[in-house]
């Protein structure tokens, strides 16, 4: 089962011939993901690595190859349109890895994606992985272990760290998903928590938040109101000073709500066990199951 991706995924890679796109396409194929097409305008008719047909447009990839999921590695100035193109072509799930899309552009992209009934994950995210089955994005395949814990995070390498801690302790994962560090993202904590709650392959969820915004507080309320499965949390940025952007465009404290302390409190008040260090997530999960 897992969430959002799995055996049913037929992936088209937008930007397949670029440096990052080609590298990660090979990694995804090696992991077992069904990559059915690639798109690079002007390279239509080529075959990538002798096995993946390349098209000029996503629409062709959908018609010719039945692509139902897209992953985007194109440069930031073209990535907004790449999302629109995928939604316009009828792709149901769009995963955008690209970092640095203008916020104003994402604000115009999101309503279009929603009107087309598509789900966007990201931008500026590592994507998602179902251990042993399928990965879409850049999460390293060698650190995951099949199992029954769902992981949702705003971060990239911090997610790897926590997956690694779980795997090292013998705790496997059902799906790990990075939703992205930008202020405007397509899929939020709430969407993922609901999907994990409904997923028959997931027994408990780890939520990894960071400073900035109020998404963690919204997620905490949902956990209390709608979730029967245990949720364990971690918040990065206790030592971050207010008013400074900590790398992620979204990670900036403005007002009191965006602080780590405020988010930790919201987690605790709503029944989410909070780990003080990444390694403590293992114990908190064991205690909750």
């Amino acid at each position: 089962m897992a969430i959002f991706i799995g055996g049913q995924t037929r992936l088209v890679v937008q930007g397949i011939t670029g440096r990052d796109g080609s590298f990660h396409t090979r990694q995804m194929i090696e992991y077992g993901t069904r990559v059915v097409a690639g798109v690079t305008p002007g390279k239509g008719g080529l075959t990538f690595d002798g096995s993946v047909p390349v098209y000029n447009t996503v629409a062709e990839a959908v018609v010719e190859r039945g692509a139902n999921t897209s992953v985007i590695y194109v440069p930031a100035r073209f990535a907004g349109d790449a999302i629109l193109e995928a939604a316009d072509a009828g792709v149901g799930l769009i995963v955008c890895i690209t970092e640095g899309i203008p916020v104003a552009e994402m604000m115009r992209v999101m309503p279009f994606v929603q009107e087309r009934g598509a789900r966007l994950i990201g931008p500026n995210c590592p994507g998602l992985i179902v251990p042993g089955v399928c990965k879409v994005g850049i999460l390293p395949g060698q650190i995951v272990l099949p199992g029954r814990i769902g992981i949702v995070s705003r971060s990239g390498t911090l997610t790897y760290e926590i997956i690694f801690q779980l795997t090292s302790a013998g705790i496997g994962q059902s799906t790990s998903i990075g939703i992205g560090g930008d202020p405007i993202i397509g899929t939020d904590f709430v969407d993922c928590l609901r999907a994990f709650e409904a997923d028959g392959d997931t027994d408990a969820v780890v939520i990894i938040g960071e400073i900035g915004g109020t998404d963690e507080q919204t997620a905490a309320r949902l956990v209390k109101e709608e979730m029967s499965k245990p949720v364990v949390g971690f918040i990065a940025g206790q030592t971050a000073p207010p008013g400074r952007r900590m790398g992620h465009a979204g990670a900036i404290i403005s007002g009191s709500e965006g602080t780590a302390a405020e988010k930790v409190r919201a987690f605790q008040e709503n029944g989410i066990a909070v780990a003080e260090r990444p390694v403590e997530i293992v114990d908190a999960l064991r205690a909750s199951l």
């Binding site: 997610t159 990894i208 900590m246 790398g247 992620h248």
Partner: peptide
């Protein structure tokens, strides 16, 4: 490497 891991 990575903002989230840097903060953690």
């Amino acid at each position: 490497n990575g903002a989230g891991l840097a903060m953690a």
